[in-house]
Deep mutational scan, measured.
Amino acid sequence: YWITCCPTCDVDINTWVPFYSTELNKPAMIYCSHGDGHWVHAQCMDLAERTLIHLSAGSNKYYCNEHVEIARALHTP
């Protein structure tokens, strides 16, 4: 949970406070499906809480801010 998930990541173990109602003692993470995949903080991706809950409940693929354009290009005929 205490990783630098992207170039603009500002989640710090020493200063972090809950942002989403689902967070208690660690930041919400979401899995990016690009390549071998990697974890990113939901807050760093500017996800709305409703979107985070929807993604967490389903089996939808998610692409982080850095990889979403690549994913779109691969799926565009």
Rank of each mutant, 00 (worst) to 15 (best):
Y1F: 09
Y1A: 06
Y1S: 09
W2C: 04
W2V: 00
T4A: 08
T4Q: 06
T4E: 10
T4R: 12
C5A: 02
C5G: 03
C6G: 11
C6Y: 05
C6S: 15
C6V: 09
P7L: 10
P7S: 14
T8Y: 02
C9H: 01
C9R: 01
C9Y: 01
C9W: 02
D10M: 04
D10K: 09
D10Q: 15
V11F: 03
V11S: 03
D12T: 05
D12F: 05
I13H: 08
I13R: 15
I13E: 15
I13C: 10
N14V: 07
T15R: 02
W16F: 01
V17T: 03
V17S: 12
P18A: 11
F19Y: 14
F19S: 07
F19M: 11
Y20E: 02
S21Q: 04
S21L: 02
S21D: 07
S21G: 08
S21C: 13
T22M: 15
T22D: 08
T22C: 08
T22A: 07
T22F: 06
T22Q: 02
E23C: 00
E23G: 03
E23I: 00
E23H: 01
L24S: 07
L24G: 11
L24N: 13
N25H: 15
N25Q: 15
K26S: 07
K26M: 02
K26W: 13
K26T: 09
P27R: 00
P27F: 02
A28Y: 12
A28E: 07
A28D: 04
A28R: 05
M29L: 14
Y31Q: 14
Y31K: 13
Y31T: 06
C32S: 01
C32E: 00
C32N: 00
S33V: 07
H34P: 01
H34K: 05
G35W: 04
G35Q: 07
G35R: 03
D36S: 07
D36C: 09
G37P: 14
G37V: 02
G37C: 02
H38Q: 01
W39L: 09
W39T: 06
V40N: 02
V40M: 09
H41L: 04
H41N: 07
A42P: 01
Q43G: 06
Q43R: 15
Q43W: 02
Q43T: 15
C44R: 00
C44N: 01
C44L: 01
M45K: 06
M45C: 06
D46S: 15
D46Y: 08
D46V: 14
L47G: 02
L47W: 02
L47C: 09
A48N: 04
A48K: 12
E49P: 13
E49S: 05
R50G: 13
R50W: 06
R50L: 13
R50T: 14
T51K: 13
T51Y: 10
L52V: 11
L52K: 03
I53T: 12
I53L: 11
I53Y: 08
I53A: 15
I53V: 10
H54E: 13
H54L: 13
L55G: 06
L55K: 11
L55Q: 13
L55I: 10
L55S: 12
S56G: 12
S56T: 12
S56V: 12
G58V: 07
G58W: 10
G58Q: 13
G58P: 12
S59G: 13
N60I: 10
N60W: 06
N60F: 05
N60R: 10
K61V: 14
K61G: 14
K61E: 12
K61M: 15
Y62C: 03
Y62F: 12
Y62R: 02
Y62K: 02
Y63G: 03
Y63M: 07
Y63V: 10
Y63A: 10
Y63N: 03
C64R: 00
C64P: 01
C64S: 01
C64V: 02
N65V: 12
N65D: 05
N65F: 07
N65I: 15
N65A: 12
N65G: 13
E66A: 11
E66M: 14
H67C: 11
H67M: 02
H67L: 01
V68N: 05
V68P: 08
E69T: 12
E69A: 09
E69W: 14
E69S: 14
I70P: 05
A71Q: 14
A71G: 10
A71S: 11
A71K: 05
R72D: 13
R72L: 09
R72N: 14
A73D: 13
A73F: 02
A73E: 12
L74F: 15
H75E: 13
H75M: 10
H75G: 14
H75A: 12
H75I: 12
T76C: 03
T76Y: 10
T76G: 10
P77R: 15
